[in-house]
Design a protein around this nucleic acid. Structure first.
Lengths: 99, 99
DNA sequence: CAAATCGTTCGTATTTCAGCGAACAATAAA
DNA sequence: TTTATTGTTCGCTGAAATACGAACGATTTG
């Protein structure tokens, strides 16, 4: 099957990959994979970056569709977006030819 | 097992992900996965970007370690770097929890 | 030897990224 | 009502990314 230039699949892979293109965002996702959810404030306490910077990273992951936040005022609980996570799994599995 | 901040694994995933963060680079890798190797000039003919831009993209993939180029003067034959490709497969498989 | 071909590098312009501190807004707590 | 807590947004800075055309260098071709 022919590989198409600038296909939807390529754009999606690139979009998800861009979101993973920073170790802090990879860490956040690994943490969520391990403990199912977390709070921004807790992350802020652990990570050696300003909370505004963390906020920007979380926004990037949200914009990519990989996480979602649920308000538990005054805090926000973040968790993985299962649907898009499954899509990313499938895309990278096919792209990287895993198994 | 505890998730470590800024681990080697996170940095590697982020590095490979950054290389995949553009649809043209994803296309190139898909093409190489399908036909094993290709020439820069051929890519340049197919893709709607300047050849200097393509050269930059190929350099980025080389710098990330995903492809390598073999000189067949005056052309260059590009192919996937199998060793690093296998590493990327393993990293993303574990990270995305594929199977 | 000159011309052609191929691919890289440079410089430029623009956009995006990643960091920060300060200010802001929403909510809870006192 | 005031204060505290939480997280976002803004503006800034500097670096990186993405695009290009022009110029360059290495090799092949005529």
């Amino acid at each position: 099957m022919e590989v198409k230039i600038n296909s939807d699949q390529q754009q999606k892979i690139a979009r998800y990959a861009k979101a993973l293109g920073h170790p802090v965002r990879v860490y956040v996702l690994q943490l969520l994979g391990k403990q199912s959810c977390c709070y921004s404030g807790d992350l802020s306490d652990e990570l050696p970056i300003a909370k505004s910077t963390l906020s920007q990273h979380l926004k990037e992951l949200k914009d990519a569709g990989l996480i979602q936040g649920e308000i538990e005022a005054p805090r926000i609980k973040y968790c993985v977006n299962k649907e898009n996570w499954a899509e990313a799994q499938e895309l990278f599995k096919n792209f990287l030819k895993i198994d």
